[in-house]
Amino acid sequence: MNLAAIPSPTQSVWHLGPLPLRAYAVCIILGIVAACVVTEYRMRARGAPKSLVLDLAVWAVPAGIIGARIYHVITSPEAYFGADGDPVRALYIWEGGLGVWGSVLGGAVGAWIACRRLGIPLSFVAACLAPGLPLAQGIGRLGNWFNNELYGGATTLPWGLKVYEFDTASGKAVETATGEPSVLGTYHPAFLYELVWDFGVALLVWQLDKRFRFGKGKAFAVYVMAYCVGRFWIELMRTDPANHILGMRLNNWTAIVVFLGALIYFLRVKGPQEYLRVDEDGTITVIPAPGSPASAETGTGPEAAIETATDTDTDDDAEVADEPDDEPDGVDLSKEPDESGDEPDTGDSEPAQSRPGT
């Protein structure tokens, strides 16, 4: 027995009266909250109105969960439609089984609907969401730990995961005749590898977007490519049942296809980073990021404001230069005062002390 192995929980559901509190659902909710917080912060920094992320989440989150479950059921149909399957259990989302690819696709459809209603581009939302989504995925992976699932091959490494025979329906580890949880063995913690990778992807996307100021949602493409790389090698470690094509798990092929699609998008799509401007009447307008060449060309950035101010100052100087001199024409200043000490008559009845130069 590996004494240094990481222990797994023996329970994943607690009952608060008639209400079951499931760790898997809690982890997913915490991940969604984290993604919303990050996305809201990035949106506000780019000119979006307060709480815009909530208007998007009410569409994207349910669609993402539905898409995730549909993908899992389609790619692993035996447990639900096989000889010993139960189709009704396809609705038991709390027992685990959410496909990331379906989640992203379903969430994108929901976000697209919300963007159409709000009048903002989906690329703006995707760019702001890019670091938050892998953060949510990493937090959600803790649910797999509670369910004693998503592990790799057997190992004797110190960070091996002790896995119990688990009944996800009851949310408890199966017990032996002595009342002890039944241990399956010690395995690679694939869920933990993906958790660490997801957090690394979130940090990578955040730093690269901060450095290069990706436009047109290209930050999201960076997230997709980085996630696919990690998911590919982690998927090779998994030992849970899955459909295979040409000797490789279906999710590996999906990772390859999605990576190539994101790479093509990243290389072909051009454009400045997008910001939002909210007018007094509540109208939302998409503008180029301040400081970008497109911002100066369209007159929406600080460079344009400086140029406008300079032009205004130049015009004012020209007007001042064209103004007539206050000194009246035809005055002979070399003429001496008369004997009474009065100034020469200039034809101006204004008192002398009020004239310029006196």
Rank of each mutant, 00 (worst) to 15 (best):
M1N: 13
P9C: 06
T10G: 03
S12T: 04
H15I: 05
G17Q: 07
G17F: 09
Y24E: 01
A34I: 06
R46N: 14
L52K: 01
L54D: 13
A63T: 04
I65E: 00
I70W: 04
T75G: 03
P77Y: 08
A79L: 11
D84H: 11
G85P: 10
D86Y: 13
P87E: 08
P87H: 07
G97M: 02
W101N: 00
G102P: 01
G102M: 02
V104M: 02
G110H: 01
W112D: 03
W112M: 10
R117Q: 14
C128V: 06
P134S: 09
Q137W: 05
I139L: 10
W145S: 01
W145P: 00
N148A: 09
E149R: 04
G153R: 08
A154F: 09
T168R: 04
T176C: 10
A177E: 15
T178K: 13
P181N: 09
P189H: 10
G200A: 08
Q207I: 13
L208D: 06
A221W: 08
W233R: 14
E235L: 09
T239V: 15
A242W: 07
I245L: 15
G247S: 11
M248T: 13
R249Q: 14
T254F: 07
I256A: 15
F266L: 11
L267Y: 14
V269K: 07
G271M: 07
L276Y: 14
V278C: 10
V278F: 10
G282I: 14
I284H: 01
P288S: 06
P290H: 07
P324D: 01
